[in-house]
């Protein structure tokens, strides 16, 4: 028992990370009171990293710092390219920014989600990160579906079905990573085709398509590509 507690303590996130997460949640919740509180979320998301860069916090080892720096570069590439597309679109067409808050939120989400995905893939490796991400996807889908299904058990059963492919893919990613990787890329493409659209309002279309790509397809595409590029020796015995 004490060994289990010791292991849990060893794998507990850093205190600064926990405080940062609490600030992010508080910032999001209090934003409904006043948007000024959203700055709290910014402090939570960027504060620990800033303190680490300033040398005040020394709670990460060199591999963790390298994963964070590499992820920062990936986030710069993804968001930077999106920024260039956006400027081109605004300058080349008569599209005007009807809701700049939506666009800035989208760019912020792209920056942060790319950073998160990349740092998890570097830190945990493709197999572990993909498995955990798929389990998270499945659990989130299941929770939303169950909350929406009402009190009937048959409704729960039907609502939980869309989560099953994610759990199956998680198991597959562990045993046969390349097969799972190919399936994830295909599912990401199918999701984009199913949920994305290109409206008459180009700016609106861009926001929706990028949002869909970011939240639904991006994690699957990123993990799928990482699994497909796994070296043979990284895959488990019997893996393809």
């Amino acid at each position: 028992m004490s060994r289990v507690i010791e292991q849990l303590r060893a794998r507990r996130p850093a205190t600064a990370t926990l405080v940062g997460a609490a600030l992010v949640i508080a910032g999001f919740l209090l934003a409904s009171v006043s948007w000024w509180f959203f700055i709290l979320a910014g402090a939570g998301a960027c504060g620990p990293g800033l303190l680490r860069e300033l040398g005040v916090l020394k709670d990460k080892d060199e591999f963790q710092r390298r994963a964070a720096h590499r992820a920062g570069y990936h986030a710069f590439l993804a968001t930077g390219f999106f920024g260039f597309v956006l400027v081109a679109l605004v300058r080349a067409t008569t599209g005007e920014l009807k809701n700049p808050a939506e666009l800035t939120t989208l760019m912020l989400a792209m920056l942060w989600l790319t950073w998160l995905l990349s740092s998890l893939l570097t830190y945990w490796g493709a197999r572990k990160a993909s498995t955990r991400l798929l389990l998270g996807f499945g659990a989130a889908w299941l929770a939303f579906a169950l909350a929406d299904a009402g009190p009937r058990p048959l409704g729960w059963l039907m609502a939980s079905l869309p989560a099953l492919p994610f759990f199956a893919l998680a198991a597959l990613a562990w045993r046969w990573p390349r097969v799972a990787g190919a399936l994830m890329v295909l599912i990401a493409a199918a999701m984009y085709w199913f949920f994305g659209y290109w409206s008459n309002d180009r700016m609106g279309g861009l926001i929706v398509n990028t949002g869909v790509a970011l939240l639904l397809c991006g994690p699957l595409l990123g993990c799928g590509t990482a699994l497909l590029s796994l070296r043979r020796e990284d895959a488990p015995a019997g893996a393809h």
Binding site: A10, R11, D61, E62, F63, Q64, Y123, W124, G125
Partner: peptide, 10 residues
Amino acid sequence: GVSRQTIIAI
């Protein structure tokens, strides 16, 4: 003085 994940990656 590093995390277990660092040893795994090495």
